[in-house]
């Protein structure tokens, strides 16, 4: 009887120790997560807040401080009136340039990649693996290698300092990525489906349209997000091959933040930075879940 109670209290003590340890572990886990989340979010928070603060107030209290003013002017200025390198039209033109560059380049490179991936996984022929490997090399070539050739080609095509030139560059450069992503994904679609469809009398295009494409949304989401954010965020080609009013937004941002007036207009720059970051951020917020899932399903293997 006494033994039993002792045992029970021992059990009880062990249980409380275990519970406390469990609690401490959870505390450490959540504590670390909160610290890291702060590190990740504070820069974003700073920019967002500063885009609504008064410029003088920022100058007085520093960039990182609780806002004591609230204004929307900075956004308007950044969008349409702020002066960058002589023209005072804000970022709007560059924003449209980036859209005009990113949307077609994303669509074209994704479409081509899907077709290529389909062929390289489901219509293999002698040497197709070798060709695929060659295409893959394109993923690894640093942009710096292609600067001179592109300058020459764009010049000859009359596409220097034009958004269309950038579209061309991003399509050609993107094909390697999109093909890789799509091929790796399509490989996991059973070949038997294609065989069954061929017996059913479907040809190259019908199989693509009716069988492959309906199964493709995970990888198309990945590819579109990857291409859109990659092209929108690209800077090297933008700054090399365009100038002034033709520049995409990344190049304009650098020009804006570098335009050294003596008072740093952090409010306007913050708004400009957010304008430049917003489209890929939105795409990511809506598609990020699918992006990670798709990336691990096929793209990275």
């Amino acid at each position: 009887m006494a033994d039993a109670t002792l045992d029970q209290s021992l059990d009880h003590r062990a249980a409380t120790v275990a519970a406390r340890r469990h609690f401490l572990t959870r505390l450490v886990i959540y504590g670390l997560l909160v610290v890291f989340a702060a590190i990740y979010l504070i820069p974003l928070l700073v920019v967002v807040l500063n885009s609504f603060r008064d410029q003088q107030e920022i100058a007085r209290n520093g960039l990182i401080s609780l806002p004591r003013s609230f204004r929307l002017d900075a956004w308007g200025q950044a969008w349409s009136t702020y002066c960058i390198g002589g023209t005072c039209e804000g970022m709007q033109r560059n924003f449209y340039n980036s859209l005009k560059m990113t949307i077609p380049a994303t669509i074209i490179s994704t479409a081509v990649g899907a077709m290529n991936g389909y062929i390289l996984s489901k219509w293999r022929f002698r040497g197709s693996e070798a060709l695929f490997t060659c295409m893959l090399l394109g993923v690894f070539i640093p942009g710096q290698i292609s600067l001179m050739p592109w300058a020459f080609i764009l010049g000859n095509l009359g596409l220097s300092n034009s958004v269309y030139g950038l579209v061309l560059i991003h399509v050609i450069q993107g094909i390697s990525f999109t093909t890789l992503f799509c091929r790796n994904y399509y490989v996991s679609i059973p070949d038997d489906l294609i065989k069954a469809a061929r017996i059913d009398g479907a040809g190259f295009w019908r199989i693509f349209r009716k069988i492959i494409l309906p199964l493709s949304s995970p990888i198309l989401i990945v590819t579109v997000i990857w291409q859109f954010t990659g092209i929108w965020n690209e800077y090297l080609f933008g700054v090399v091959f365009t100038s002034g009013q033709q520049q995409p937004i990344t190049a304009a941002l650098v020009a804006l933040t570098a335009s050294g007036t003596n008072v740093r207009a952090y409010d306007v720059m913050s708004a400009a930075v957010l304008i430049g970051a917003l489209p890929p951020l939105l795409i990511y917020l809506f598609g990020g879940k699918y992006f990670v899932r798709g990336l691990t399903q096929g793209a990275i293997k």
Partner: peptide, 22 residues
């Protein structure tokens, strides 16, 4: 996950600019 991953969507230009301020 979303918090830790969002910088991926932002350009190096944006990140670089903001951190240069910090």
């Amino acid at each position: 996950r979303t918090i830790f991953l969002y910088p991926l969507a932002v350009s190096f230009i944006v990140t670089g600019t903001v951190w240069s301020w910090l």
